[in-house]
Write a protein that binds this DNA or RNA. Structure first.
Ligand SMILES: [Mn+2]
Ligand SMILES: [Mn+2]
Ligand SMILES: [Zn+2]
Ligand SMILES: [Zn+2]
Lengths: 143, 143
DNA sequence: TCCTAATTGAAAAACATTTTCAATTAGCGC
DNA sequence: GCGCTAATTGAAAATGTTTTTCAATTAGGA
């Protein structure tokens, strides 16, 4: 259930965004990615297709893609943080701690937990952040 | 189930850390806190007790406290990120989006989910990262 | 009290991200 | 296709955060 390049381009147009060379390059990188990427990662890869790309534009484009729900911010233990492609509306990410491969999953099924915590604390719960870290099948074999 | 100041001091000593004025000030701030704090927040508060404290030392002390499990890094939507006091071994945080008040909860009960995702993806799951955002009772009333 | 390794803060360096601004360009109307 | 114009761009500067360096200080055991 990959993110589709053309769909995303159409979406950008429809939202009134111009389809510049630079944006196409960033979008191409992001839609093909199966790993967590930092802004610098995206920059490095997209620059191969579009040599006069600027890092500023990468930041600006990632912001737009996040608004569109095409990528999701992910948090990692150390510094934090990166972006991972998002194709499921209410999805969460599972990230390989060794190679950074990223897969999405849905059905987080937290309602029982949320109800319990809400009852115990008196808080109203607005959103949740869930992320899993593990080893992908490939990396398990390499161990 | 608050973090206990003296217990934490003892723990520091036992680990071979010197109990300096600066560390005591940082530890005091952190153990009393009921909110997410940035390094700068901790600095500002601890400086009131220890005026010649340096921000560098705050960063160094927070690192130690994280190792000891006395605080936990938390992630917020915007830039990310801060620290919140941790008194439950395998606890997670619930943070008020309005006043930043933070409470810990335990029993995240994800095993069924983890098993399912593991089966579907072939990943081995090593850790999970769960954080809830909502409105504390006080802030609900103010709304 | 003395000694020494641990710890400190200021300053500089390293990084990451955002803002500014003049130059460029995508896409619309013709 | 041709121009027009508002959106977009990249370089540079600004901002903000965290880490490193290093000489001076200090906690705590002998
Ligand atoms: Mn969810
Ligand atoms: Mn984060
Ligand atoms: Zn892997
Ligand atoms: Zn609140």
């Amino acid at each position: 259930m990959d993110l589709d390049l053309d769909t995303l381009k159409t979406q950008l147009s429809e939202q009134g965004y111009k389809l510049t060379r630079q944006r196409k390059a960033v979008v191409a990188v992001v839609t093909q990615a199966h790993m967590r990427l930092s802004a610098a990662d995206v920059f490095a890869q997209a620059q191969r297709v579009c040599p006069d790309l600027g890092l500023t534009t990468v930041y600006r484009t990632l912001e737009i893609l996040e608004e569109l729900g095409a990528i999701r911010r992910v948090h990692l233990d150390d510094g934090c943080e990166g972006f991972a492609p998002a194709s499921i509306e209410h999805g969460h990410h599972l990230i390989c701690s060794r190679c950074q491969e990223t897969v999405e999953f849905e059905g987080c099924n937290l309602s029982t937990l949320l109800k319990r915590v809400s009852g115990q604390t008196g808080f109203t719960i607005q959103e949740h952040w869930l992320e899993l870290v593990g080893l992908c099948p490939k990396c398990q074999r390499k161990k």
